[in-house]
């Protein structure tokens, strides 16, 4: 079986000379949720637009379920639904008309029952006869999702689906994405909200300056690169870190009430036992202890911020 998306040696140089993508290689499997993570201007949208046929690649090839996006563009594009980043809608059309239009455009015969079901699943049914210009931003986003789903695609691209969307709607959107995934749709979403990738994705690709710098299973990525922090709440303030503890990577809070110890979870030894023994020897007592794992965001910053 072919991968859902297979990108090989893809490069894109715009007429301005800007290199948006540099030799990108990426495979996305059927049925997974893949998050493409990167700061603004990293090349996320260019990559998606190239796969969807909106941007011409400078070099390299892309296969969608084995179909070349240039030679077999009909087969390739029929499989894909795209939800763009910008809220680009036909302001004067009704919700029903614009979604029906999308279905036709992608070569599917009219199917009012399916469109009704799609609109209902996105809580758009009672808005079906409203003009798009009268809808709120969040509703417009849903209309774009309905348009992308109108032709029953197997692969769905969500380009920053929750940008500018309130928390409640964001959660609702995630539910929609999950239920789509359950129905077997492959989902690729771009985001610069780490929490979104963390919440949704099974695999994460990090893109920066047009290069994919990492593709990994999310939990693996987090455990592999994750650092943990142990915070000790002290019984008594201390003026500074005792000299006998200088070998540990300890930070002291400004008020002298907390000590923070940073350690690697995938190291053989975390050094916790030794630290605790040394602490009691130094006479430092603590009343509480918490540990926290670094989030994808911390990992991300450490990756993207890495000097070249």
């Amino acid at each position: 079986m072919h991968p859902a998306i297979s990108v090989k040696n893809l490069s894109k140089r715009y007429d301005s000379g800007f290199e948006a993508l540099k030799n990108v290689n990426l495979e996305i499997e059927h049925g997974e949720i893949f998050a493409l993570l990167g700061p603004n201007g990293a090349g996320k949208t260019t990559l998606i637009s190239t796969i969807c046929g909106i941007v011409n690649p400078t070099a390299g090839s892309i296969l969608v379920d084995g179909n070349d996006i240039v030679k077999d563009y009909r087969a390739a594009r029929s499989l894909i639904g795209l939800v763009p980043q910008e809220l680009t809608t036909d302001a004067f059309e009704t919700v029903w008309a614009t979604v029906s239009f999308s279905r036709g455009l992608f070569g599917k015969p009219a199917n009012p029952a399916y469109i009704e079901q799609t609109l209902k699943s996105l809580s758009l049914w009672d808005k079906k006869d409203d003009k798009i210009m009268t809808l709120s931003g969040g509703m417009k986003r849903r209309v774009l999702i309905a348009k992308a789903l109108s032709h029953e695609p197997q692969i769905l691209f969500l380009d920053e689906p929750t940008a500018g969307v309130d928390v409640e709607l964001r959660k609702a959107m995630w539910d929609v994405v999950r239920s789509l995934r359950e129905s077997g749709v492959t989902i690729i979403l771009t985001t610069h909200y780490i929490e979104e990738a963390e919440e949704m994705a099974e695999r994460v690709g990090v893109i920066s300056h047009g290069e994919i710098i990492l593709v990994q299973d999310k939990t693996e990525l987090m455990s592999k690169l994750g650092q943990k922090q142990m915070t000790l709440h002290l019984q008594e303030r201390i003026g500074g870190i005792p000299g006998s503890l200088s070998a540990y990577s300890l930070d002291i809070s400004d008020d002298g009430e907390m000590l923070t110890y940073t350690y690697d979870t995938h190291g053989e030894r975390t050094g916790i036992t030794a630290l605790l023994a040394d602490l009691s020897q130094a006479g430092v007592k603590f009343k509480d202890l918490t540990t926290s794992q670094s989030s994808l965001e911390d990992i991300f910053v450490s990756l993207v911020g890495k000097p070249k």
Binding site: S49, C52, G53, I54, Y73, R74, A75, A76, R77, S78, I80, L82, P84, E86, T88, T89, D90, A91, S102, L105, F106, G107, K147
Partner: peptide, 14 residues
């Protein structure tokens, strides 16, 4: 101008 052309360009149309 509005950007909705993305849909036509990404559709399986010649």
């Amino acid at each position: 101008f509005t950007g909705t052309i993305y849909e036509v360009l990404s559709a399986p149309v010649s």
